[in-house]
Design a binder for these strands. Structure first.
Lengths: 343, 343
DNA sequence: ATGAAAGCGCTAACAA
DNA sequence: TTGTTAGCGCTTTCAT
């Protein structure tokens, strides 16, 4: 099979240790005579020796690999379907990992039922966890994790205060959206979110939404919170019953797109009769008709930051985990307009 | 540190072998009494034992991991910038890998200078190689690879006939594009490609382009081949000199977009004065103005197919490597029109 | 039914 | 300067 240190050692007439020292000990005090070193190097070249990184990593009890972990409760995210959320985030994660010399692994089982199996099985030096669903399964998995881990889209306190967290300033984002709508004259505003009993970030955004409505003297009831399930049939039901709002804010672009498309299927003009705002503002928004106004978060930078934090932690940093909060913006496109504006 | 088989064995009062058998030998003839098995299972649960997959893989000399390898000669592809090419492909690769129980790893060095280091370092059971640049570096790396490998965007014969290949029917795609343009009355058609001395797929597409021009009685000269370098300044130079064509076909969407955008900067109407066709037809085409007519290839399916071939090969399939060719289509959008049509 | 031995390829620690 | 020993955690083989 493959050429090992042993083979090279045999050919060069030395012990394997010497070969290891010559070939891998870099600048260190190699303490091998130049003559032997040359012989070793020559033997290695002739045999086409390449270090077995798996063995080296096993021995060193490290892998230089970071696992990307998706909490249970979701389907596998797609890079090129619907919202570009995952693609943006991944670009940041990849950038950060490569800059730090780490590889990135996507695992099948990680993304489904049993994330905890990956959490200390020796394959990863650290994990990025992106899920803000605080289910028992997720909480349990996280509590049993014994490699460094960084949270994305959750606050450190929400998952045991043991892991640093990276998230956006939901307060700021939602505030910008509400102010934008109020400025356009909207008073009947709904908030749409996926049904996911304990998606903490959605609940955060909802709470902020309610607070800012109050600040503008708009009262919101439970009827203004539109919870949409997996199959999204609630969207049609909403329009069939007659839209109760002049504007909607959705907790992500995918859901916003669903409302946007179905509204038009029901011959409701967007933004003439209904303004819609999404969240994430990836280039996906450019593909919709009308183009989707959306709250932006710097997903790419957030991904890079998550990796940097993780690497620091892998390298032994034990400082108190804190929340790293990134600013949000509002990208105004074609899906929002002055209330009742039949353009 | 982490709990090992040994710890569980000690607690249960048996040898590590027994623990291994009980916990990991699945349905096999376990040949352990139920009483001992129970004791072992209980000890494992109490200690929170989880199998060290890295160790297991090391021992088994396999990793259940596939590496994604990008030949040298390019910058790292982005998932969410410009053309969505890489995102589409990755979705297929991920889908195929997960379906087969394999993980997918992206490595920093794989994507840059020294791909051969990853080609037999024990970290991967197989590799997907996507690059059709037949440089010495790439040819050398491929020849030294000693794990199963599948090529994407190249024919098996182009890289030593040792690896199965997955590519699209460039002949069909370019033919559709040329026929479309000819049908719209175009006779002066240029072909744009990145300068990359030995990008075999581009050269393929160019050859097919020339052939089909001839079939329609259009003569092409070297001046009709627009080679564009890294910084893409040749695009401006082309327009500054005055476009010599009424239509352009580009070998990918990114390059087509460059021509489309710069044309408009030079106040050339697209498609009124210049029709443009890209290659890949990802949703990126929807974001451009006008939307880009483009030759489609089923990147996602191609990615899945590549993984299936690779897995078969990893599992010992030794059948002759062949080319797996996928059909192309033409997605007609807004960037092509009847010649001279000043809409 | 259970266990002892051996080894995957590598390198840190110590010995010569 | 070089070599020997030992072991990372696991599982296959063979012995009991």
């Amino acid at each position: 099979m493959a050429v090992t240190l042993r083979d090279v050692a045999a050919k060069a007439g030395v012990s394997p240790v010497v070969v290891s020292r010559v070939l891998h000990n870099k600048a260190q005090a190699v303490r091998v005579s130049e003559a032997t070193a040359d012989r070793v190097r020559q033997a290695a070249t002739e045999l086409g020796y390449r270090c077995n990184v798996a063995a080296r990593n096993f021995r060193a009890q490290q892998t230089m690999t970071i696992g990307i972990l998706h909490g249970s409760g979701f389907a596998r995210p797609k890079l090129n379907e619907g919202s570009r959320y995952f693609a943006c985030l991944m670009d940041g994660l990849i950038e950060g990992a490569f800059r730090n010399g780490f590889s990135l692994t996507l695992c099948p089982q990680l993304l489904s039922e049993t994330p905890e199996h990956a959490m200390s099985d020796g394959r990863f030096d650290g994990l990025v966890w992106y899920s803000s669903v605080s289910s028992d399964a997720n909480l349990g998995a996280l509590s049993r994790c014994d490699v460094p881990l960084v949270l994305i889209h959750a606050r450190t306190a929400q998952f045991g205060s043991r892991h640093p967290a990276v998230l956006c300033d939901n307060e700021q984002g939602i505030r910008l959206a509400v102010e934008h709508l109020v400025g356009l004259g909207h008073r009947k505003i709904g908030f749409a979110m996926d049904v996911s009993p304990l998606n903490l970030e959605s609940l955060d955004r909802l709470a902020v939404f309610r607070r800012h409505c109050v600040l503008h003297g708009i009262e919101t009831t439970d009827g203004d919170v539109l919870e949409v399930g997996w199959d999204r049939r609630e969207v049609d039901a909403y329009f069939r019953a007659g839209s109760r709002h002049t504007a909607l804010i959705a907790h992500n672009d995918g859901l916003a797109a669903e409302f946007l498309n179905r509204a038009q299927a029901f011959e409701i003009d967007v933004p003439g009769q209904l303004s819609i705002i999404g969240f994430d503002s990836t280039s996906y928004c450019e593909e919709l008709r009308p183009r989707l106004t959306s709250i932006s978060q710097p997903l790419r930078e957030m991904g890079e930051c998550a990796i940097d934090l993780l690497v620091r932690s892998i390298q032994g940093d034990t400082s108190e985990p804190v929340d790293h909060i990134f600013p949000c913006g509002l990208d105004i496109r074609g899906s929002t307009a002055i209330v009742g504006d039949q353009k």
